[in-house]
């Protein structure tokens, strides 16, 4: 039995390996599916829902759905793009995201996603929630104002660092990133070199005293939209043919 599976994304034939999810196979084929909570290093969390695609016309998180032979996947439909924009806009209004003085600006996946989608300002009203900071750790700064509850730190701490420093606490609007069940970061065994610290897509978990060391113009998304590296792969492959 063959290990390869062939399916289509927006009409383009893609060949993936058995056991891959749609987002993994699409990445390998140079097709970018927007995502915030998924990274290659972590097990999927499927919480941000930004990677939702239509599989045989059914909305499905592409980070958890394994590919299947003959599957018809739609990624860039007008409706899906609208849904994704709305999700990104809701993330912006739900927290306190002040890009203008955030040191993650230019390297922030949420900001970069908004730029990719051409979102100049959210259409929903800002909620301006009151969120807590945790600056107790000598080398790590936790700013919950900017947390989008993607859970990457939760999974990284548990699965990669083997520590379980971060968890979700509370429900609904009150849900937040907890630290060892309501402790302070200084009271945990978290270390600045932990994968959990480097996993944050936004400016919520920061290494202290890094600040604005990278000048404007040299930041990750200063010149190319997020996802460009994946899409460049497809262009290179097309040129090769």
């Amino acid at each position: 039995m063959s290990d390869t599976i062939t399916f289509t994304v927006d009409g383009v034939e893609v060949t993936g390996r058995k056991g891959q999810t749609i987002i993994q196979a699409a990445d390998d084929a140079g097709i970018y599916i927007p995502r915030l909570c998924w990274t290659k290093k972590l097990k999927p969390g499927a919480s941000c829902r930004l990677c939702t695609v239509l599989v045989n016309n059914r909305p499905t998180a592409s980070c958890t759905q394994p590919i299947g032979e003959g599957m018809v996947v739609l990624n860039e439909t007008e409706q899906l793009i609208t849904y994704r924009k709305n999700l990104v806009e809701m993330l912006f209004v739900e927290g306190n995201h002040f890009c203008m003085f955030c040191e993650k600006s230019g390297n922030c996946e949420l900001q970069a996603m908004a730029y990719r989608f051409g979102i100049a300002a959210p259409k929903f009203p800002y909620m301006f929630p009151k969120r807590e900071l945790d600056a107790s750790h000598p080398d790590i700064f936790l700013d919950r104002n900017r947390c989008i509850l993607c859970g990457r730190c939760v999974r990284a701490s548990r699965d990669l660092d083997g520590k379980g420093v971060f968890q979700f606490v509370g429900r609904g609007n009150h849900k937040k990133i907890g630290v060892n069940a309501e402790a302070r970061l200084a009271d945990t065994n978290v270390d600045v070199s932990d994968d959990a610290v480097g996993s944050c897509p936004v400016g919520a978990i920061l290494k202290k005293r890094v600040g604005f060391a990278v000048p404007v113009g040299q930041r990750l998304y200063d010149h190319q939209p997020i996802g460009s590296d994946t899409e460049a792969k497809a262009r290179r492959s097309a040129r090769g043919k």
């Binding site: 203008m100 003085f101 040191e103 604005f212």
Partner: peptide
């Protein structure tokens, strides 16, 4: 955090 000041306060 103090390292934000030069960028934050200029706003």
């Amino acid at each position: 955090p103090y390292w934000e000041m030069p960028v934050l306060v200029q706003r």
